[in-house]
């Protein structure tokens, strides 16, 4: 299982990386390589040139400001795991990315790599969609911003042009007191989820939900926002009957794929099950505290 013959370049800047992409048709970006290397090993892709952005300092780091949280494309899962301030600022990001892959992969795998790879069952694309993130895309004409829902076009397909690369994303600020939860079901720890559901919403003084966001992974050709479910919940008090009817709506509004691990019918039912579970958890969130899962130093 050896890679096809390829050339390798390590540009010193984003601009140089884009020039390299422009110079060789079919060239691909590599950073952590945790999604790309298996593809190359199976020879499902044979790019003539790999452009390694793995040492570009501008793509590192996170920035938490009142207007949102900016993550560089090279932020790794292990960094999110260790960053207590980030975990407080973006609890859903923290909770969802805790499910990504395994220890060794988490030490190299990057936020940008996962987004650009665009597996519909991956957590990070799900975070982006569920949180209305803005993706920052660098190309020959400079940086353009793309809304997360517009970024993903299909399984392993994004709007990124051949000569563009993702340099980072910005998550909107997370208002205090927000109710949220994420659950996914995978056959084993670290596997791609058969399905996953994230919710977050605010609650007004009367206990009514507002600003409801419902996201699903592994439930369609891209990570999904379940707008119909959001509309169903918006402005209403969350109770058992509403959760139950919204769960049915959630199942009806996804379009999962069949594969050898699970068929569409199972995945659809799983979305309903997980939706019920995250709603119950979100409702009971306050007793759990706001910090989400533990930080590993």
């Amino acid at each position: 299982m050896k890679l096809s013959r390829l050339e390798y370049a390590r540009p010193a800047s984003v601009a140089e990386a884009i020039e390299l992409l422009q110079g060789t048709e079919g060239a691909k970006i590599i950073a952590g390589g945790q999604s790309l290397m298996p593809v190359l090993a199976f020879r499902l892709a044979a790019p003539p040139l790999l452009v390694d952005i793995g040492r570009l300092e501008d793509l590192r780091g996170t920035e938490i400001t009142p207007v949102g949280t900016r993550l560089g494309a090279r932020v790794r899962w292990c960094e999110i795991e260790r960053d207590a301030a980030l975990r407080r600022a973006q609890p859903l990001l923290a909770a969802m990315t805790d499910h990504v892959a395994h220890y060794q992969v988490r030490n190299r795998g990057t936020v940008g790599g996962s987004l650009a790879h665009a597996d519909p069952a991956a957590e990070m694309p799900g975070v982006a969609v569920a949180c209305d993130a803005i993706m920052h895309v660098a190309g020959p004409a400079g940086i353009r911003d793309v809304k997360s829902e517009d970024f993903f076009e299909g399984p392993l397909q994004t709007v990124l042009a051949e000569d563009e690369l993702l340099v980072g994303l910005t998550l909107p600020p997370w208002p205090p007191g927000r109710r949220w939860a994420f659950e996914e079901f995978a056959l084993r720890r670290g596997d791609f989820a058969l399905a996953g559901v994230a919710v977050h919403y605010g609650r007004d003084a009367e206990g009514r939900a507002h600003g409801v966001r419902v996201g699903a992974i592994g439930a369609g050709e891209t990570p999904l926002r379940l707008h119909a479910v959001e509309a169903e919940l918006e402005g209403r008090k969350i109770g058992e009957a509403l959760i139950s009817s919204a769960a049915k709506l959630a199942a009806a509004s996804v379009d999962p794929m069949n594969d050898l691990h699970a068929d569409a019918e199972y995945r659809r039912a799983l979305v309903a099950t997980l939706f019920e579970r995250v709603m119950l958890r979100a409702e009971h969130r306050q007793e759990e505290g706001e910090n989400g899962p533990a930080v590993h130093p």
């Binding site: 590599i30 090993a41 390694d52 793995g54 292990c78 060794q104 992969v105 030490n107 190299r108």
Partner: peptide, 19 residues
Amino acid sequence: CTVIVDGEAVRSCLMLAVQ
């Protein structure tokens, strides 16, 4: 194939030698 690169455990099959 796990090895330790700059203090962190990584999969050496998912890394090019040049990296």
